[in-house]
Simulated assay, not measured.
Amino acid sequence: MPADRFSTATRLRALGAQAAERVYRARGGSVRAPRRSRLTGRAAMLALVVCSLVVALAYPMRQYVSQRSEIADQRRQAEHAREQVKRLREQRARWQDPAYIEQRAREHLHFVRPGETGYTVRDGTGDARRPTDRRPADRAWYQNLWDGVDSADRGR
């Protein structure tokens, strides 16, 4: 028996193609060549490499973006700290001025110069910054205490 150069699978495939041609001719249709897959081994390997690169670079890119965000936050905080230092230096310079110290003492501690007469208005109308209707939560604790003592004394 002579050695056949085609394998059995190749011969069966050729016989199947011939049978398909006869069926299509009998129906009156044209014979189509068998459709080959468009995805070759090289294309599949390329797709696999591209997907691997995307997966491999996803985490470092996420880290890069988050670190850039943190750097921006740190820069904003540093700028805020610089502005605060500038305000504190200006305030320190004001406290070096004796006129400013005197103004603050007069305003908050009600100091007067020798020979001046200081007046304190008890009903609160002399101080324009105070609200006229002060609830117990808005007043100092000792005012609430004395009001409680006064109301107990009156029998309420």
Rank of each mutant, 00 (worst) to 15 (best):
E102G: 02
G115Q: 00
R68F: 11
V112H: 06
R82D: 07
H80S: 11
I101E: 01
Q63Y: 07
H80G: 04
A105E: 07
L88G: 02
R92K: 05
E107L: 14
A99M: 02
A93T: 02
R82L: 10
I101H: 01
R92W: 12
E79R: 09
R87K: 14
M61A: 15
F111A: 05
V65Y: 13
V50F: 05
S69F: 12
I71P: 00
A58C: 14
Q67N: 13
S69E: 13
Y59A: 15
V54F: 15
E102D: 06
L57S: 13
V112Y: 05
Q103D: 13
Q91V: 12
A99D: 09
R82S: 10
P114H: 03
V50S: 04
V65F: 15
Q67H: 11
P98F: 00
R89E: 15
R94Q: 07
E79F: 01
V112S: 07
R68W: 10
E70T: 08
W95H: 11
C51V: 14
L88E: 15
Q91S: 14
L53R: 07
V55S: 13
S69T: 08
I101Y: 00
E90V: 12
L88N: 10
R68K: 15
L88I: 09
Q91K: 10
R87N: 14
R82E: 11
Y64I: 07
D97L: 02
H108Y: 09
D73N: 09
A93Q: 04
R104C: 11
S69M: 09
Q103W: 04
R87W: 08
V50G: 03
G115P: 01
L88V: 05
R89P: 03
S52K: 02
L57Q: 08
R106T: 11
Y64D: 05
E107I: 03
Q84F: 01
P98Y: 03
A81D: 06
A78Y: 01
Q77T: 05
A99K: 06
S52A: 15
R113Q: 08
I101K: 01
Y64C: 07
Q63R: 08
S52G: 15
A78H: 01
S66T: 10
H108V: 12
P114N: 03
R92Y: 13
R89W: 02
I101N: 00
R104T: 13
R106I: 08
Q96Y: 01
D73E: 12
F111P: 00
V65D: 02
V55N: 09
A72K: 15
E102T: 04
Y64G: 06
R104F: 03
L57C: 13
V54R: 05
W95K: 06
E90P: 00
R94M: 09
A58D: 04
R62E: 09
Y59P: 03
A105Y: 00
R75A: 14
P60K: 02
V112I: 15
E79H: 05
V112E: 04
A93S: 08
